[in-house]
């Protein structure tokens, strides 16, 4: 046992595991290009007309590489869940494209779309709502395979047992119903189900925030181990910055439907550059009472995505605001290899 994780020197993690410094870059699995999702605001009941648009996601571009984890952080309402839904094909993008292994999934045929659907699975935050309470665990885990594969029953059963043991549960658990499990165990079941189709990408939407503290590390470590074993990529959506640092290789910081900063994980945490990222970092809770934090508490609220501010969307709350910020939309600047910021300061 590590008596205290603080004793683990930060430099002990091999740098070759970190992105951006690696000679042989892993291949890009999925790429989002200028992704937009606008929801219409309508008036009238039977004959409705659109009076405005909620720009939930407004021009996102990012890449997810094979076997790596991209974290998306931001506050509620910043569009991170909508982004996840678009990747899961639960929402159609208004504009922009999702390229999976180089193919635009919205332009490809139904066969390829089906293939994409199988390759992208999800684990959600609330383990009480993500498992159908009226199905036995073995049927829950088998369901994706039953839908997508024509396997003999015996093989499905064996695979369910393998998945249960992979997530640290026993074969007999398959005969129980979800309500007979604790939150952490349910999250393990959700992970087993998500893995059943051998997906290439799993969207993790706040996978540990509903769990007890002593259970969170179990689940995070399990996810990391499974990533090694299955060579699966993760898109992690979280608001807890320390969790993101532990889990991710790349991080995108979102504000009002846009990415304001995008960088390899250590670069972002050691050199946060966008004022919003800095504010988030200073608001996050320290891991030790002696750590002095920069006092930078944001005032005001996140503006409505119905009517976002002109220019830089962060300018009404930004402590470093300049004249041009309310006029010009900042362009994305690469301030160091892999570290992208959209702010007029750079």
């Amino acid at each position: 046992m590590t008596t205290s994780a603080g004793q683990t020197p930060p430099s002990s993690s091999p740098s070759s595991e970190r992105p951006g410094q690696n000679g042989s870059e892993p291949t890009v699995l999925l790429e989002a290009r200028d992704l937009k999702k606008w929801f219409p605001v309508t008036k009238g009941v039977l004959i409705s007309r659109t009076t405005g648009w909620i720009k939930a996601v407004d021009g996102l571009s990012f890449q997810i590489r094979t076997g790596e984890t991209l974290g998306i952080v931001g506050e509620s309402g910043c569009g991170k869940s909508t982004t996840a839904k678009m990747l899961l094909m639960l929402e159609e993008p208004t504009e922009g494209s999702i390229l999976y292994q180089g193919q635009d999934i919205h332009l490809s045929g139904p066969e390829q779309r089906r293939e994409y659907r199988k390759s992208v699975q999800a684990v959600f935050q609330d383990p009480w709502s993500s498992l159908n309470p009226r199905m036995r665990v073995k049927d829950l885990i088998a369901e994706p395979m039953v839908i997508n594969w024509s396997l003999p029953r015996q093989e499905i059963r064996e695979r369910v047992e393998k998945l249960l043991s992979d997530v640290g549960l026993m074969a007999y658990h398959g005969n129980l119903y979800p309500h007979e499990f604790s939150g952490g165990q349910r999250q393990r079941l959700a992970i087993a189900r998500a893995l059943s189709l051998n997906p290439k990408l799993i969207v993790l939407d706040e996978p540990v925030s509903a769990l007890d503290v002593s259970i969170r590390a179990q689940i995070m470590n399990l996810l990391k181990d499974l990533q090694q074993e299955y060579n699966v990529s993760y898109l992690l959506i979280a608001h807890h910055l320390a969790t993101v640092r532990y889990m991710c290789d790349w991080v995108a910081v979102m504000y009002l439907g846009q990415i304001v900063e995008y960088a390899p994980v250590r670069e972002l945490y050691e050199n946060p550059s966008h004022p919003y990222t800095k504010a988030l970092m200073s608001a996050a809770l320290p891991s030790h009472p002696d750590i002095e934090q920069e006092e930078m508490i944001l005032t005001g609220e996140v503006p409505s995505p119905l009517n976002p501010p002109a220019g830089c969307r962060f300018h009404p709350r930004c402590p470093f605001v300049m004249d041009r910020c309310s006029v010009d939309i900042p362009v994305v600047t690469e301030i160091s290899p892999g570290h992208h910021v959209s702010c007029h300061l750079y």
């Binding site: 590590t2 930060p10 993690s13 590390a217 995070m220 640092r245 889990m247 320290p286 891991s287």
Partner: peptide, 13 residues
């Protein structure tokens, strides 16, 4: 020891 840290990389919790 099981809580991830904001300020440093942790190899394994």
């Amino acid at each position: 020891a099981s809580v991830p840290k904001l300020e440093e990389d942790v190899d394994r919790l």
